[in-house]
Amino acid sequence: MKKLAYIILGFIIGAVLTYYFCPRDLGEETLHTKIIKPKGLVSPGQAKKLNDNWTKFREAAVDSAAKKQGRNKDNRSTWWSIEDIENYIKFAKNQTDSLKYNLTGIRVYSGVYGDNAGRTKKNLSTMFLIPTVKKGKAEASMNPFNMMLQKGDDCEECDGLNDGTGGNNSYPN
């Protein structure tokens, strides 16, 4: 009988140790997250064509302007890490909530670093992200379809995301 008690105690200790030391998914989100195909996806062939069209119709003008600023070529892409993008989306949601806005999306803008941007970025093109919002949480909550019908305005009070890595390579890089 004493041996049986030790065996049962061993099973209990093993179960407790297994519970605390075995890896497991702690995120509720990942258990119930449904992957939804976003609107506006383009195939790799379509992306190549878009890039080729940019090269055909814009590259000469953009690089000509860059040459006037003392550069041979201008940036034609901007890269951010997945972590930076995910963190920015969380940050934008938090910031717009605190301003009593409904975050409706993210808009991408083209910009140009100025003369004071340092040697590596001086007068080069860049991209930056700005949250778009609908003002007034109370109004939007009355109509659940409000968010789907209207894209939203730029949040002029919100911080944007810049400082990605620029490049002058064409697609695919």
Rank of each mutant, 00 (worst) to 15 (best):
M1H: 07
L124W: 02
N116V: 06
I12W: 06
T126S: 10
I130F: 04
L4D: 10
T165Q: 12
D84N: 13
G10T: 15
G114F: 09
A66K: 01
E139W: 07
K90D: 12
S98F: 00
G105H: 06
G164H: 05
P131D: 04
T96I: 00
E59V: 08
W54G: 01
V133N: 03
I85Y: 02
I7G: 10
K137V: 12
T165I: 08
K134W: 02
K39E: 12
K122Y: 04
I13M: 11
Y88Q: 01
T30Q: 09
I7T: 15
W79L: 12
T126Y: 06
Q95W: 03
Y113N: 04
K90V: 09
R119G: 01
D97Y: 05
V108G: 00
F21E: 05
K93P: 00
Y109T: 03
V112T: 13
I130Y: 04
I35N: 01
F21K: 11
I85R: 01
K100A: 05
T104D: 02
D25Q: 14
K67S: 13
S81N: 07
R71S: 12
G27Y: 14
I8L: 15
D63L: 03
D153H: 08
S81T: 15
S77E: 02
D84V: 07
A117V: 06
L161H: 04
S64I: 03
P44A: 04
E29R: 08
D154S: 14
